[in-house]
């Protein structure tokens, strides 16, 4: 099963790192990426340019509006992601817990919808509130 690990970090704080700190931080990322490639969990991963470079689009009533900046201004910004392959959420959390930014920011782990797989875990089909009563 695939999970995406969204990496939120405070860009301002990252910007104030000394050269050695920044090198250490990047080194930790290279090492982590190398590790999960070796273990077979890596599918994809990218770092993003800072949010000043973001452009947000929305189309309402046929009218496209374009605005400068990210979807929501937050204290910590989406700065990159990994797409990983893991057996279950526990393994995904274990891997995500080794992403260097876990110590400075927040990692959000989200399962990816698999449209091709019909052989997912069995579903009872009628999951209404009534069946749990």
């Amino acid at each position: 099963m695939r999970y995406v690990c969204l990496i939120y970090d405070d860009e301002k704080k990252l910007g104030t790192m000394s050269k050695e700190e920044a090198n250490g931080f990047m080194g930790a990322y290279f090492q982590f990426t190398e590790d999960i490639k070796k273990s077979g969990n890596y599918v994809a991963g990218e770092a993003l340019q800072p949010v000043q470079s973001a452009t947000s689009l929305r189309s309402r009533a046929g009218k496209l509006s374009t605005t400068d900046g990210p979807f929501i201004e937050t204290k910590e910004q989406l700065g990159g992601f990994y797409l990983i392959e893991a057996r279950d959420l526990n393994e995904a959390l274990q891997i995500a817990g080794r992403i260097p930014s876990v110590k400075t920011g927040t990692i959000e782990v989200r399962p990816v919808v698999d449209f091709s797989a019909q052989k997912e875990a069995p579903r009872a089909g009628r999951e209404t509130a009534a069946t749990t009563a």
């Binding site: 279950d88 526990n90 399962p111 875990a121 579903r123 999951e127 209404t128 509130a129």
Partner: peptide, 19 residues
Amino acid sequence: AQRIVRVKAKIRDARIPYE
């Protein structure tokens, strides 16, 4: 009931293992 339905959906969709 809604709370329980929602949490069961998360167990299934995020694949929280039974272990």
